[in-house]
Amino acid sequence: MKKRLGNFALALVGVALVGALWAITSATIAPDLPSPLKTWEESKIYVMQPWEKRGEMDQGILRMASYSLWRVAKGFLLAILIGTPLGFILGASNLFYKMFDPTIQVLRPISPLAWLPLGLILFRQSEPAALFTIALCSMWPTVINTMQGVRAIPQDYHNVAKVLRLSPWRRLTKIWIPATLPFMFSGYRLSLGLAWLVIVAAEMLTGTPGVGGFLWQEYNSLIYSHILLCILTIGIVGFALDRLMGVAEARLRAA
């Protein structure tokens, strides 16, 4: 307990130091960068009335974040719905692995900025294009971790399945899925992190309401302090998401 308190205090010191660096930078070499105080003054209204809707792109920060979160949730769901079975197939079949692994390795490093225009061409609307991009970019950790999980199933378990003559369905539900679950969840955690990373780019390019869209609009209207507000929000929400998945993952490993 005492140690945790100490760690928390140290983290606060870290935050304070970075804040100080920020203040010094804006006071000296980067006059366009709003100081922490100015950022707060100009963003106060978004934070103090977080759920307020004053216009399409003029909404409280929580409301904005919730639009983004909802979009991420849909894209992430799409990613794991496609990625998990894909991972299972690749892990179970050497043939499929050899067939598709090179393609996956090529698709994996492609940036969301490259996928988005393709999505817009395909769907002609910004919302589905954004989901397409989020799903396509965030899917890979799920695919790869699930695949590795399946490959890591001990031979002992396969032997048990064989000597008991389990049907393919029971093999999947009684052995494969439970054995792979921890790997799957590590994949989900990474995927969710990526999905959140992608959302900003997707909203910036499509101009949809959300933290990313707001950020881009405020850049165009030269209100830099709001950019900083968005950056902070994105970081904090991302951190919270990761922690949440971390807790779920730990639960799973303990079970």
Binding site: V163, L164, P178
Partner: peptide
């Protein structure tokens, strides 16, 4: 493999996410 041959390996090879009973149940259902 066949259910006319029961096999016990060197390591118990129980499925760790199932209770003892459920491990045996898996075989009983088959």
């Amino acid at each position: 493999p066949g259910l006319d041959r029961g096999v016990v390996f060197q390591s118990p090879s129980l499925l760790p996410w199932m209770t003892a009973l459920d491990n045996v149940m898996l075989a009983a259902c088959q």
